[in-house]
Amino acid sequence: MKKQLKVEAIENGTVIDHISPGQGIKILRFFELAKGPQRLTIGLNLPTSSGDFKDLIKIEHTVFDQNQANQLALFAPKATINVIENFEVVDKFKVAIPESISGVLTCPNSNCISHNEPVDSLFNIKQERVGVKLKCHYCEKSFISGVFREFH
């Protein structure tokens, strides 16, 4: 008998699909999606048609703006965002790595001046051979996303 995953459809909101396995929980935590009153469904390690696995998040009454979608790309560069209205997909787009990210991450360099001064953190993002690198605007040090505590 064919096994089929049953996930309840949502009337209005967002479906984030094609999240790399293991990243779904981190995305919930980073965007604080589980803190609000909206209904939320998360699927972890779901099989895909190509034989791989993925995570998936459905969240009602929430729409990701472009800025949030780009931040999402730091966790899940292959994710797609489906905007749902009246049970229909009215918009669907892929996320893109942003050029910079401001005010969200804390510099992993404990001696960076940004920690104790009245400024927002700012990282310029570069896609390098080894993956995405975030370079602090202040201390000029570059980091892979895995070293930021916000991504854990």
Partner: peptide, 8 residues
């Protein structure tokens, strides 16, 4: 003594 002080 802190990195980024001059930029700030």
């Amino acid at each position: 003594n802190q990195e980024g002080a001059a930029r700030l």
